[in-house]
Design a protein around this nucleic acid. Structure first.
Lengths: 346, 346
DNA sequence: TTGTACGCGTTATCAA
DNA sequence: TTGATAACGCGTACAA
């Protein structure tokens, strides 16, 4: 037979090949491979030698089929290209690796039906558990699979219509702290430049902003639904060009923060003298910008890590049966754009 | 028996359950599920109804075991938290999804032995193919698995010691173009601030820089091995504080670019009047910085997409047998930090 | 058109 | 201690 190209696994060495070569039964070879103690030392050495020589590696698929666990988990994110998510994904991958699990990555692009399909595919692939950043809306398949016994951990946002473990960030408190800081600087007209209003994180941050204003007995002044740098820029211009404009801005995500900075620049205003600014969500360049940018930092790596650990707690039977909710604190990184003096913070 | 918690797949519905419930043979149920035409219409309807009611979904693991292809590919990157890689990963995931394949994500942290281990694990999981951003050094396992028939595509950098398909970026030409642009602006002392010198991409970019200087009959002036913003800052300070300092900088990656900007700022110099700067590698804020930052953009999404498509070409038996090399062009995004007038480019 | 028997590569059961 | 045999869930070959 000619040496044709055969797609697929190639002619991999199987346990049978090892057994044949070593002159033992398949089961004995299996025992050696799995390091079971009940095997004659000399024979173990002989089999091990054959394993080495033939380059045998167990077929994980067959193992999973038999063993009823795939040692694989699924991750469905809304957008891996978002640096925040990428950091989460990296942390999750690390935890999965520590636990001997592979990680299947899926990107729903924040689309519910795509997410739905992915959940189905992952279930078909027999993943042992699922980590996801839920898209907005109720995911029927997710609910069904969870009910059927699939462990699910939602992170960054809770899943709608399904009670799952969740690991979140203190969006409200972080936003409140940032707003309070601006108020502490003496600002009385503090505006909120926010993302799409039905996003979970956007809502929470708006709540925090409102809480701070209310506590200080000030009037809220917000604009919402800016979901790009351009829209953030437009929204900010609208605020600043209105009569009696704000003297401080809280930009509720990275896009609106950048848009706000551009708008301020375009209008010939200066940060922080004319308009003070605080953002939400970290970015590499925050301390390279001038003035250095003050923001609320989210613990991205820890978010991913804790989410993954929560899932493995479930898989390994630890913890209470009812769904857990973990909320991680944010950190206000005070630099200069809020009006604080230079040199206090990197 | 009590309804205890059983980790694992739960009691999933199998084809047998469907067959039993519908009163047909397993094979008939299988036919209906796979949409084979040779089946009685009425019976097909009955089986489909049972499938629906029981919520049956085929076990992809068993399918793979039988079919000798897992419909899974592996991706090993050196650092997913790098925004550039995250964009690549997103593109790859999209292509995998289009081809009905799942994507297992591994992060080698640029460590050769970690990469080696991952390649082994992926092979054990019977991935149909492998995409990787090779760490520096020769990976024995990679070579072995490729020889055993595993299709491999390296991207962003070629793999050392193994002949594989590769999809790369025009590092040298991009760097040359950027340097030429600075020379065109009239600079005669153009310095190179570079990454770790044995990195493939760093070497290529240095080559391009040198080519441009040589063509203009100028003296090269480079500093290397800066692998963080801080080191880039230090290196740049060293260059600018020396006698007869450069009037232009080519920063060969994003970290050295940011470091250079900080150094310039700290020394009280202005961009581009005192020092012109061009960077390599795109970042979100490049057009938010003032002056707007000129850089060489790498086609991250296309890099990932083409790499994945190259792999599927192999899997689907298209293309020539010998290893292919594809090199994608970069794009010089001219803004202001190079000395060009404002308003020419976004 | 439908069903039976077998195999994919592994682990589990039980007897030798 | 070792090995024959039966699963795991599905698809293929062949027969009915």
């Amino acid at each position: 037979m000619p040496d044709t190209f055969t797609p697929g696994f190639g002619n991999r060495i199987t346990l049978r090949d090892v057994a044949l070569e070593a002159g033992v039964s398949i089961k004995t070879a299996s025992r050696v491979v799995n390091g079971e103690p009940t095997v004659n030392a000399a024979m173990a050495v002989r089999v091990a030698e054959v394993v080495e020589r033939l380059g045998y590696r167990p077929n994980e698929l067959a193992r999973s089929l038999k063993g009823r666990r795939s040692r694989t988990i699924g991750l469905v994110v809304d957008d891996v290209s978002n640096p925040f998510m990428a950091v989460c994904a990296q942390a999750i991958e690390g935890v999965a690796q520590e636990h001997g699990h592979a990680l299947i990555l899926c990107d729903s692009h924040a689309d519910l039906s795509t997410e739905d399909a992915y959940v189905g595919l992952l279930a078909q692939r027999q993943v042992d558990g699922l980590l996801l950043v839920p898209a907005r809306g109720r995911n029927g398949r997710l609910k069904a699979e969870q009910r059927a016994g699939l462990p699910v951990v939602a992170f960054d946002r809770p899943a709608e219509g399904v009670r799952t473990d969740s690991v979140l960030v203190e969006n409200r408190a972080g936003a409140r702290e940032a707003t309070e800081h601006l108020i502490w600087h003496g600002h009385e007209r503090v505006a909120f430049v926010g993302d799409v209003r039905h996003y979970y994180t956007a809502r929470k941050r708006l709540d925090g902003y409102k809480q701070a204003l209310k506590a200080a007995d000030l009037e809220p002044l917000h604009t919402l639904d800016a979901h790009s740098i351009e829209q953030g820029e437009e929204a900010t211009k609208g605020l600043l060009e209105a009569p009696d404009p704000p003297t401080a801005l809280f930009a509720a995500n990275i896009l609106t923060a950048l848009g706000a900075l551009r708008a301020i620049e375009d209008l010939g205003l200066r940060v922080p003298d004319d308009v003070a600014v605080i953002g939400f969500d970290d970015f590499e360049l925050a301390h390279v910008l001038r003035p250095r940018f003050t923001l609320v930092r989210q613990p991205a790596a820890e978010l991913g890590r804790r989410a993954a650990e929560t899932l493995f707690d479930r898989l390994e039977g630890r913890g209470r049966p009812e769904p857990q909710r973990l909320v991680l604190p944010t950190e206000l990184i005070v630099r200069e754009s809020c009006g604080c003096a230079p040199g206090l913070s990197p």
